[in-house]
Computed example of a mutant assay.
Amino acid sequence: MFLYKIEIELEDQMAHLILLADTDEKAFSVVESHVARHFIKMPVVKSAAIIEKKRPELGAGYFIV
């Protein structure tokens, strides 16, 4: 398992998603479902990229500004 920080480029803004997944492929496979849960109307996802990937351990996390 890995903790992923994924940067998502939408039509008019950038977003970040932090999630736990077994592989890169599984992480990317759930990006759109997380975006859909956050917005009332599904925005167009232009791109998604893994910015950071680390093994989960006590105290692991990401600081987002």
Rank of each mutant, 00 (worst) to 15 (best):
F2P: 02
F2D: 02
F2N: 13
Y4N: 08
Y4M: 02
Y4W: 06
Y4L: 09
K5D: 08
K5V: 05
K5F: 07
K5G: 05
K5Y: 09
I6G: 02
I6P: 01
E7D: 06
I8L: 01
I8S: 01
I8Y: 00
I8D: 03
E9L: 08
E11A: 10
E11K: 04
D12T: 13
Q13K: 15
Q13A: 14
Q13T: 15
M14T: 12
M14Y: 06
M14E: 10
H16C: 06
H16F: 05
L17W: 09
L17T: 00
L17A: 07
L19M: 13
L19C: 15
A21M: 04
A21R: 00
D22K: 14
D22E: 15
D22L: 12
D22Y: 09
T23R: 05
D24Q: 07
D24M: 07
E25R: 10
E25G: 13
K26I: 11
F28C: 08
S29V: 06
S29W: 07
V30R: 13
V30T: 13
V31G: 02
E32H: 12
E32D: 15
H34D: 03
H34Y: 14
V35L: 03
R37G: 10
R37Y: 05
R37W: 00
R37S: 14
H38K: 14
I40V: 04
K41R: 12
M42E: 11
P43V: 01
P43E: 02
P43Y: 00
V44D: 11
V44Y: 00
V44L: 12
V45K: 02
V45L: 04
K46W: 01
S47L: 00
A48P: 01
A48I: 03
A49Q: 12
A49V: 10
I50W: 08
E52G: 01
K53Q: 06
K53A: 03
K54V: 14
K54S: 11
R55A: 12
R55N: 10
P56E: 09
E57R: 15
L58V: 12
L58H: 13
G59M: 04
A60Q: 12
G61H: 09
G61S: 02
Y62K: 07
Y62N: 02
Y62Q: 03
Y62V: 06
F63T: 14
I64H: 00
I64Y: 00
I64L: 14
V65F: 11
